[in-house]
Amino acid sequence: MKFGYTLLCEQTPPKQLVDDLVGAEEAGFDYSVISDHYFPWLEEQGHSAYVWSVLGALAQATDRIPLMTFVTCPIMRYHPAVVAQKAATVGVLSDGRFTLGLGAGENLNEHVVGRGWPSADIRHEMFAEAVEIIKALFGGDYVNYHGRHYTVDSAKIFDLPDRPVPIGMAAAGPRAGRLAAEHADALVSDQPLGDVVEVFKAGGGEGKPVYGQIPVSYGTDLDEATGRAHRIWRFSAPGWKVMAELPGPKAFEAAAQTVRPEDVTEAVPCGDDIERYVRAVQQWKDAGFTHISFCQTGPDRQKEFRAWAEAHLLPELRERFA
């Protein structure tokens, strides 16, 4: 397995994101992922920088560590032709270290352009068309496209990396898993869904990477780490079907009012007991995931997490999951 470091734009100022990834590269993480939002889920998280500006800085500030969006929605806030251009540019700036992670999005971020929020069926249709456009533009030729949802008029990307940017597609159900198997170089999920991984493999994804993410709350004081996890991650307890539909941070706050700390810690390893983290990784490995990134809770706790991960967590995980 490969172990990555998550840059969470929604909790961290943009300049610190760059410093954190430099530190993660020095600590020996295998790769990195970064979120792409317009809003944080909760206002108290306090940030949400434009990820493509940050990616340019990350590409120049680091030398080795692979970069990946986790994930970009190419169906409303961004036109897919523009996503293709942005991704190709980051691919060039990073000397081929960039993977474009794509997903069908959340109302939270996409409603800002004033087009409403389509049903899940329509979003999947839009997603499939968007990926077709992006892949065609990565080919380097002029592209004309006339679909149900998008039109592209004689578009061409002039700055492309030596090899096309790999595409990862997010899936939380069998339909999205089949779509990823048809179009993607990798599968992405924020849940350890073994059935979706099997659909992906059976549809043509056998041997391709499968990316997951574990939110964690490292700290030597377990009670403090648990409280911190609850403050930052309580928004996620209602599950993806609810999260995809909520329109803003106030709605997430309302949905999370009854979430208890113990509801959060079921999915978020807390404290400094490595066995908690090993058990979490084992669950994802059993579901067929090949890549796991860790999203440490709290912008002020990144440095101490990286030091602990370098000295203890990463060596232990590599020994057990080689």
Rank of each mutant, 00 (worst) to 15 (best):
I274E: 02
A229M: 13
T297K: 06
A57K: 02
E206T: 07
L58F: 13
H111S: 13
A87F: 08
V165T: 00
G227T: 00
E182K: 12
D36M: 05
G203A: 12
G101R: 00
V18R: 07
D30M: 11
T290V: 02
K303W: 12
D263W: 02
A251V: 08
F321R: 08
P80M: 05
T89Q: 04
L67C: 12
L179W: 14
L42P: 05
E182S: 09
E106V: 12
D141E: 12
T265R: 06
Q191A: 15
Q282L: 10
F289M: 14
A104T: 10
L67S: 04
Y218Q: 07
M1H: 09
V199E: 00
L160W: 11
R175A: 15
S35V: 15
C270Q: 11
P215W: 11
E310R: 10
M1Q: 13
N107M: 02
I75T: 08
Y150N: 01
M1D: 12
E43A: 11
R320G: 10
G248E: 09
R148G: 11
V278C: 08
A176V: 14
E182D: 12
D20N: 14
T220L: 15
R234Q: 13
Q282V: 12
S189K: 10
F200V: 06
W117L: 05
A256V: 12
G203M: 13
G239F: 06
V188P: 11
H183W: 15
R175G: 01
E110A: 06
G248A: 15
Y5S: 01
L102R: 05
W308H: 11
P161S: 11
R97I: 02
A184S: 04
R301G: 10
P14A: 11
I274D: 09
A84N: 07
V92K: 09
A255I: 05
F29P: 06
L42Q: 04
W52G: 02
E275L: 02
D162Q: 03
P40W: 05
Y31E: 04
V92A: 01
S293P: 09
L246F: 07
E253C: 15
E132N: 07
F158N: 14
M126Q: 02
C73N: 13
P249L: 05
R306K: 07
L137F: 05
S32M: 08
Q282W: 14
F321A: 07
K303V: 15
R77S: 04
D162M: 05
D223W: 01
K156F: 15
A184H: 06
D223F: 09
V242C: 03
D286W: 02
D185A: 05
L193Q: 00
